[in-house]
Design a binder for these strands. Structure first.
Lengths: 254, 254
DNA sequence: CGACGATTTGAAATCAGTCAAGAGCAGTGG
DNA sequence: CCACTGCTCTTGACTGATTTCAAATCGTCG
């Protein structure tokens, strides 16, 4: 799909360009970041709760997820990540990881030494702003997830997550919001929305029965986007797609 | 309580100093930030979802909270803030607010023009790092709250929140983790943990009956901290108290 | 005193969880 | 080729934690 010659770090440039207008020198500096590419299998850990990560990991392909294990043994998935996401920025900058990061599917990561990221942020204000913005958007998604698990019923939670994954995959250039590959099992889905796998299954069957989506293996087809978004109480503002426009434009007219 | 001569922005310097070792010039620049002090009543809004904030607000006294209103009309509280917290950084930097910020009690905020914050971050790397760190710690707390509402039962959620408020108030220099003022009503508590006020009340009664806490009006006395922390599945790592030590120290021995 | 908001308590209803078992599908090895 | 294995998905019946509805109590303040 992507040209064979595409640079390993190109997906990061693509993502950060959504947030800030990077100039040629910024892009060159980003692409010049030292890194090691590792191929990871589904289920492999990228970061461990309590650890001191030495690298920032850029997800070049595949899917990953953040999660924590509660004291009762239950797992809570905190976010899902895809190509172009710098998945270990939070843990790296905080120095001691407060959550786990694990691969959802097989994929490749580019491991960039933490110091190199720190240095490029110090040297290039626009890159620093874009990286900061990236962590802030992650934060906004965390807030939305608090609302999702805290105040929405089961059906709404599932529909909301389906919408978010659809839109983010589209934004990452991985396809169409109306037809996409679901990278998660229903058990993982349940850990993301704070429900049991059994109940997630019932809700998915329900969304299908109501003609909002159809499923085939792990492929999701959204039959009626507007209806699904409504069922999922889904509004896009929290994804802050418009970061660049918002930052570059003149202040809003009073 | 605080000396009459204390500078308005001193609480921010105090908080940021937890995260990074600021030099004298950093502190001077922070204290020189232009700002306007406003006295706010309980319930007053500091930021509106969908708005474009023009200021970063430092909470000088009192308590505030972030929240969102779901499509079904339910409110989800996202975090609680106290003296020294720069409560509007997320919304300011993202340019379009994705949540509301409202006062929980009466209090004073120092409103700093957004551009001044942007400029001090650009000019002073240590201040920028401390501010970034502040937003990252907020993010870590959001993640813990996802776990709290997603994977803990009612009693555990309440106990967890009681522990967090106790410890953060102590860290902010507002008192003792074992005896503190609860700034929230039970209805607000319920919106923070994703339960109903009725059930929150039952759980609080239960914690009291079990001898973990006692309550008197809005004052909480923790009778048995270890037991409360255990009941609340509470571990402090996610608060990243040790940010400064972690950042300044040599890398951990392999 | 009276009014209002916050807290407390009880009883009934319900959404989601639990337990259990069967069905579908992919990979493995005989 | 096909049985075997393991994982995921699906369905049913039952249970239970939390919600809902309703009303009483308490405290504060004008």
């Amino acid at each position: 799909m992507s040209p064979v010659t595409e640079h390993n770090l190109q997906p990061m440039v693509r993502k950060l360009s959504l947030w800030r207008a990077l100039d040629e020198a910024d892009v060159a500096a980003l692409l010049a970041l030292p890194h090691v590419v590792r191929s990871l299998n589904s289920g492999q850990f990228v970061a461990w709760d309590g650890d001191r990560p030495q690298h920032c990991c850029l997800l070049m392909s595949g899917f990953a997820f953040r999660h924590k294990i509660a004291g009762n043994g239950a797992r809570q998935i905190l976010s899902v990540h895809m190509r172009g996401d710098v998945i270990d920025l939070h843990n790296s900058l905080l120095r001691v990881a407060d959550h786990n990061i694990q691969m959802l599917t097989g994929g490749e990561v580019a491991m960039i030494p933490f110091e190199a990221v720190r240095d490029i942020a110090a040297a290039r204000p626009t890159v620093a702003a874009a990286l900061w913005y990236e962590t802030l958007v992650d934060g906004s998604i965390f807030r939305e997830w608090i609302v999702n698990v805290g105040r929405r019923d089961a059906r709404t939670r599932i529909a909301h997550l389906l919408c978010e994954l659809a839109l983010r995959q589209e934004m990452a250039g991985l396809g169409d919001r109306l037809v996409y590959q679901m990278p998660m099992t229903q058990e993982q889905l349940s850990d993301a929305v704070g429900l049991t796998p059994v109940h997630v299954n019932r809700m998915l069957m329900g969304l299908g029965a109501d003609g909002l989506i159809s499923r085939n293996h792990r492929s999701i087809t959204v039959i009626d986007w507007a209806a699904l978004a409504k069922a999922g109480d889904f509004e896009t503002r929290y994804l802050h797609f418009d970061g660049r426009a918002a930052a570059d434009s003149a202040p809003a007219p009073a």
